[in-house]
């Protein structure tokens, strides 16, 4: 029984990590950089949901919608202000551009955290859950409704994004741009729009994770960093490539972490993500499933 409960917690946590990792992978594939500000998109969206729901008294569903729109807008704005000027600077070599963009995301990371600290820095906050009934019982197994919601939404979103890339014209353009930027520009794709869309979509992934996690964890301005590390770990396990890979990577991360935490020591849960990042990148940079040739160098 306890195992089943732990498993449900691990799977739902893993879904959150997968979503955060998915946002990281989207930006990595488009621009070749780890986005250090991604945890802050997660944090800001959680606070946006909190603001809409608690301060403006909007209904739960409407607050979620507001927060998702906010996440998308934040991603687009941040890309336009802090990333685009560097990416479009033709006088830089590719490697130089990438280092400069990473530095810019590091700047964003702490600037957004600082901004959140002004209104929210004094104490931790909590958002009510989506459903008034907190748990349901399935065949004797008690499950949290919020966790079920996380699992369902993460599955649906991951599949939707896979379909988006394989079926829609914008998704195909995004893939083309990530594989060959110069070629994409030659065939008339507006790479600026593509980067906006990538960052907006990545922010939605992080934002949805933030909104879903908000009722389970406390909200505070520093919550993004921890999530960033877990997202990195999920992305590393998934090989920084496919949408499905990072989702499975998140699940592995969530499940193993919860069992480590339960049977070894709670403090082990926080050390798990950085260890995974280091071990995977050093010894299996293609991730759990990828082939070595898929590694971007």
């Amino acid at each position: 029984m306890e195992i089943a409960t732990l498993l449900s917690v691990g799977v739902s946590n893993g879904c959150l990590y997968g979503l955060v990792g998915l946002g990281l992978v989207l930006v990595y594939n488009a621009q070749g950089i780890p986005n250090f500000a991604h945890g802050e998109l997660f944090m800001a969206s959680a606070f946006a949901a909190y603001t809409a729901n608690i301060l403006f008294g909007l209904s739960y569903a409407l607050s979620m919608l507001v927060a998702i729109v906010f996440a998308f807008a934040l991603g687009v704005v941040v890309e336009f202000l802090a990333i685009r000027p560097i990416a479009m600077n033709r006088s830089l070599g590719r490697a130089s551009t990438e280092v400069a963009i990473v530095l810019s995301t590091v700047g964003l990371m702490i600037a957004i955290k600082g901004l959140a600290r002004i209104p929210w820095g004094d104490s931790v906050r909590k958002l009510p859950a989506a459903f008034s009934t907190e748990t349901i019982s399935v065949g004797g197994l008690v499950l949290s409704t919020q966790r079920l919601l996380i699992i369902v939404v993460a599955f649906v979103l991951t599949i939707a994004i896979s379909l988006f890339f394989s079926k829609t014209s914008l998704g195909k353009k995004m893939r083309a741009t990530s594989q060959n930027t110069a070629g994409a520009m030659l065939v008339g794709i507006n790479t600026g729009h593509i980067y906006s869309a990538t960052w907006g979509l990545a922010a939605i992934c992080g934002g949805v994770a933030g909104i879903l996690a908000a009722p389970l964890i406390f909200l505070y301005p520093d919550m993004g960093t921890r999530m960033l590390l877990k997202g990195f770990a999920a992305a590393c396990l998934g090989g920084f490539g496919s949408v499905g890979g990072v989702f499975v990577g998140g699940l592995v991360m969530g499940i193993v972490e919860i069992f480590f935490g339960r049977y070894l020591a709670t403090s082990m849960m926080d050390i798990f993500a950085p260890i995974i990042i280091i071990v995977v990148l050093l010894f299996r940079p293609q991730g759990l499933f990828g082939s070595r040739s898929a590694v971007r160098v």
């Binding site: 780890p34 990438e98 050093l282």
Partner: peptide, 27 residues
Amino acid sequence: PAIRVSGLYLAMVTMGFSEIVQWILRN
């Protein structure tokens, strides 16, 4: 070991290392 990883993976590996040092200091 970190020189085995290429380019910006190094940023993540070293950030992970920092977190581990933090964890050791705390625990």
